[in-house]
Amino acid sequence: MKKHKFKVARLMMVAALLAMIGLNAGLSAQASSSYYTVNPGIIKTKKRVVYYKDADKRVKDKTVAANHYAKITKVVTATGKAPVLKTNTGRYVTASKAFVTKTAGYQNPKRYYQVQYHQIKPHGQVGYTVKRGFEGIKTWYIMRKMGTFGGYDKYNQATYNAVKNFQRRHHLKVTGNVNEQTWLKMGFSKTAWTAIDSYVAPLGAQAWEGRSAHIEAMIHQAYRYLGNPYLVGSSSSPKYGTDCSGLVIQGLYAGGINPLPVSAIHHAYPGNEWNSRNLWASKKFKHVAYSQRQRGDLVFYYQPGTHTIWHVAIYLGRNRVIESWPPRIMVQPIKNGQRSNVAGIARVFH
């Protein structure tokens, strides 16, 4: 009798063990399909989720809304528990695919300018020869050297004539244009000849950071020019001044936006004085109502009378913009006595 009871008990234990194995196998199968079990790299939240300070999810850190991005360093799977994701900030979040999804990173919809995550390269000839009609930093240097700068850095006839005389005096080929040889003879450096052209603002936001980080990267770059002089056709390093669209171009670069065919190099070329108009005309920005303006949007202004676009600024919120307007780069009210005719608002980041 005792032997029989022992055999029954053993059979029951085996059955329970088999059931447990089957249950665990089912849970594992469920986990592999419903949870990330290998590092997804970058995730975006699909709905509100809680971040925790520990992998056991006992200590809450913060709650984030949908469309929040995070970089994942590893998947943590404890025995008998659902997997969790460890972020590069040391916080933990659920690995459930119902709450988070794998992504290549923050990005605009395809119809708009795409956010770049490799350093944007200069577009145009680095080390271009400066001729009549050119503007920008090189022209500014040349005009001051030739004594023809009167506050407007456009390579005019007086500068052309002065350069020809300079070339004759120094036994250079007399063209009236400034190539690298003439530039060096004027006492400027070989480094500056290419560095002025090639400057592109470094990227200020990562793929695993969201919309707000990209907006702040753009605005932070613009603030680096604060107080510098207004210089037409200029869009280079924060060592120098810019004009209105030149400031915006470098801000866009920092946020990861390459607004081709508009470029920092071509901004100094004849015919590119009004890149604010080209940016306004671009279909790769979303135009929104003035009442819907948000921090990081571009504000475009038209000239009274002609109603043509003549200015662009970056909206900071609270009815303030950062802009380049004579005489310098500054923070101003969105409307003032100098320019108050707003043509519209263009959204950069979505």
Rank of each mutant, 00 (worst) to 15 (best):
N67E: 10
N67Y: 14
Y69A: 01
A70K: 09
A70Q: 11
A70F: 07
A70E: 13
K71Q: 13
K71S: 08
I72N: 03
I72G: 03
I72R: 05
K74I: 14
V75P: 00
V75Q: 06
V75K: 07
V76R: 02
V76H: 02
V76K: 00
T77G: 06
T77M: 10
T77V: 10
T77W: 05
A78K: 12
T79Q: 14
T79E: 13
T79C: 06
G80V: 05
G80T: 11
G80R: 10
G80I: 11
K81H: 15
K81Y: 14
K81R: 15
A82P: 01
A82L: 13
P83M: 11
P83C: 09
P83E: 13
P83K: 12
V84Q: 07
L85F: 05
L85C: 07
K86L: 15
K86S: 12
K86C: 09
N88M: 01
N88K: 13
N88S: 09
T89V: 12
T89D: 15
G90T: 02
G90N: 08
R91C: 01
Y92D: 03
V93C: 10
T94Q: 03
T94A: 12
T94H: 10
T94V: 08
A95W: 05
A95T: 11
A95K: 02
A95E: 03
A95C: 13
A95S: 15
K97G: 10
K97D: 08
A98E: 10
A98K: 09
F99E: 03
F99W: 04
T101R: 13
T101P: 09
T101I: 07
K102C: 08
K102M: 10
T103V: 11
T103N: 04
T103K: 04
A104W: 09
A104I: 07
G105Y: 04
G105R: 13
G105F: 12
G105S: 10
Y106A: 07
Y106G: 03
Q107P: 00
Q107G: 01
Q107N: 05
N108R: 06
N108A: 03
N108M: 06
N108K: 06
P109M: 04
P109L: 09
P109D: 07
P109N: 06
K110H: 11
K110T: 15
K110S: 11
R111G: 00
R111C: 00
R111L: 11
Y112S: 08
Y112E: 02
Q114H: 03
Q114Y: 00
Q114I: 02
Q114A: 11
Q114D: 05
V115W: 00
V115L: 09
Q116V: 04
